[in-house]
């Protein structure tokens, strides 16, 4: 995969994306592309810049410099058009806790203009194995349950582009496994491009086709999870992660430029 160029359409692209906060660069000339139907993992230690990148790509935070494109369109000028074809879910947002699950999903289905919303909601609840939560109060759900409800929201508009910020944070291994499988299943069926962050290497190995390691806002290396492990002197992705988090490099003594 790493040798043959990816010929699929590029649906998300950052060119030299830089974001400073009070003079400190959270992202430093970060460039990447995401293709249709590809799952790209964004990895890095706490504070590496993953969430900042996602926020810039969602138009929630403006870049200090650099250009962003989605579906070939400049992001800022086409925000609404792009957001119609995208969606987002993270462990840090919630749907209004005082509404019932179906009420929340119905509101967002209407916002996204989903045809036949009731049917779509029923399908998604079925898909995520949570039809029984339909009439529950959203705020009373467990973390794992509400993650899956959030994912329902994220799949409502059949997005072509999906951004998931730590979707499996705070899930038990069993539910995390289920969530991964569902994400992968829907992603394959609908050929969705996903930008995915996680601190769970199991997640990354199972879900991501390609990963980018960030360290202090800069790309340290990128490739398939297997490639990256092979490039490094480590046995697994978790060790690579720790190495990069501590030293900011993939190798003890750099032999070649891994990002080229």
């Amino acid at each position: 995969m790493s040798d043959a160029p990816d010929t699929r359409e590029v649906i998300l692209e950052a060119r030299e994306l830089t974001r400073e906060f009070d003079g400190v660069k959270a992202l430093d000339r970060f460039s990447f592309t995401l293709h249709r139907g590809e799952v790209l993992g964004l990895l890095g230690a706490n504070g590496a810049g993953k969430t900042t990148a996602m926020n810039c790509l969602l138009g929630l935070t403006l870049p200090t410099s650099g250009d962003l494109f989605a579906f070939g369109l400049p992001l800022q000028a086409n925000r609404i058009k792009i957001l119609r074809r995208s969606n987002f879910s993270s462990a840090y947002t919630a749907l209004p806790g005082n509404l019932l699950v179906w009420q929340n999903l119905l509101v967002f289905a209407r916002i996204y203009g989903v045809p036949n919303p009731k049917k779509k909601i029923a399908e998604l609840l079925e898909l995520l194995e949570i039809p029984h939560l339909n009439k529950r109060v959203t705020g009373q759900l467990s973390a794992g349950e509400s993650t899956r409800v959030n994912l329902c929201k994220a799949f409502l508009n059949d997005p072509e582009l999906l951004m998931l910020d730590e979707p499996t944070a705070s899930l038990d291994p069993d539910i995390a496994d289920k969530v991964r499988k569902v994400v992968r299943k829907v992603q394959r069926e609908r050929n969705i491009g996903i930008l995915y962050t996680s601190h769970n290497m199991r997640d990354i190995e199972e879900v991501c086709d390609r990963v980018i390691f960030l360290h202090k806002g800069k790309i340290v290396c990128e490739g398939t999870p297997a490639d990256i492990v092979a490039q490094s002197s480590s046995d697994n992705l978790e060790d690579v992660f720790i190495k990069i988090a501590r030293d900011g490099e993939i190798l003890d003594e750099p032999k070649k430029d891994p990002a080229s």
């Binding site: 929630l60 947002t93 209004p96 967002f108």
Partner: peptide, 18 residues
């Protein structure tokens, strides 16, 4: 404020809502 209190603001801002 309801949207802030319920942490729903991001969901609204990442939806195609002008």
């Amino acid at each position: 404020l309801e949207d802030v209190w319920t942490r729903n603001l991001l969901n609204v801002f990442v939806a195609p809502v002008r």
